[in-house]
């Protein structure tokens, strides 16, 4: 299968940029929630995004995944501008990433297997059996193979999340967006998920953009951490998580990453 290769911009450090944001403001209507975001996410990077509840993380992700145009600024995915792009361009870009929504957003009328199969049915010419096997393999990766034939309403909230991750993996996209994948998972399942992310990232160079409050995950598998602040309405920190925790000039960032109550000095 041949694919159109796109010119990928490189930075001064020589790493390829998967997603680049310049002066991006996000929000609803004309009300900006976060303004002036400048951020490069590199190919093969595991980038965590954090910040207080309601600070705009999910909104940022919905701008990155092309569904909600930014209020201003430029967003490029694999060098393709998506701010203000036409539907054809967006459609092409959408094949480059997989997305897991905060609440799972599984198709309730379908079994888990059918949920994961759906993108395969739409975008590949595989045989029925092959699609089943692929879907089962992906459900296996998130530990749900034994539940393949259940409906989303018949499994727990954490299981629905994992099924949604399997669905995001369906087409093996080079970029994967995850909105709080480990919230509500037990520590072992959460660690399994981290291991899977690392394995895919190391083997295939898959880029992960993960919203998470799971400090253990952020420190153990995150390459960099970007933090939004709802009150100041901007990106307040960007860097390797441990470094930020120990030596960020910003008190709020250090507190956030060291889980210190806001009352303490």
């Amino acid at each position: 299968m041949t694919q159109i290769s796109t010119a990928t911009p490189t930075t001064t450090s020589g790493r390829k940029v998967a997603i680049s944001l310049r002066g991006v403001s996000i929000g609803y209507g004309d009300k900006a929630i976060v303004e002036g975001i400048d951020l490069d996410i590199y190919e093969g990077e595991i980038m965590f995004i954090g910040g207080g509840s309601g600070c705009g993380k999910s909104t940022l992700l919905s701008s990155l995944n092309t569904l909600r145009a930014p209020l201003s600024g430029s967003i490029k995915i694999d060098g393709i501008e998506i701010a203000g792009a036409d539907e054809d361009t967006l459609q092409r870009v959408r094949r480059r990433f997989g997305m897991m929504y905060q609440l799972g957003a599984l198709f309730g009328g379908m079994s888990l297997l059918e949920n994961v199969r759906l993108p395969l049915e739409e975008f590949t010419t595989l045989s029925n059996d092959a699609m089943d096997d692929l879907a089962r393999a992906k459900l296996g990766l998130v530990g749900l193979a034994a539940h393949a034939d259940k409906k989303p309403s018949e499994i727990s909230g954490g299981m629905q999340k994992r099924a949604a991750i399997a669905r995001a993996l369906a087409l093996d996209p080079p970029i994967i967006f995850l909105d709080e994948p480990s919230a509500g998972l037990d520590p072992v399942t959460s660690a399994d998920l981290d291991a899977m992310i690392v394995a895919l990232n190391r083997m295939l160079g898959t880029t992960f953009v993960v919203i998470s409050h799971e400090l253990a995950s952020i420190f153990s598998i995150g390459h960099r951490f970007a933090m939004l602040d709802g009150a100041r309405r901007r990106l307040v920190a960007l860097g390797p998580p441990l470094e930020l925790r120990d030596s960020s000039p910003d008190t709020w960032v250090r507190r956030f990453l060291s889980r210190t109550p806001s009352g303490d000095a």
């Binding site: 193979a145 394995a199 190391r202 083997m203």
Partner: peptide, 17 residues
Amino acid sequence: GDRKLLVDLALRGQDPQ
């Protein structure tokens, strides 16, 4: 290594019902 991990993860619970 990673490949074995990935395959092992995927094979969990795959016994046909």
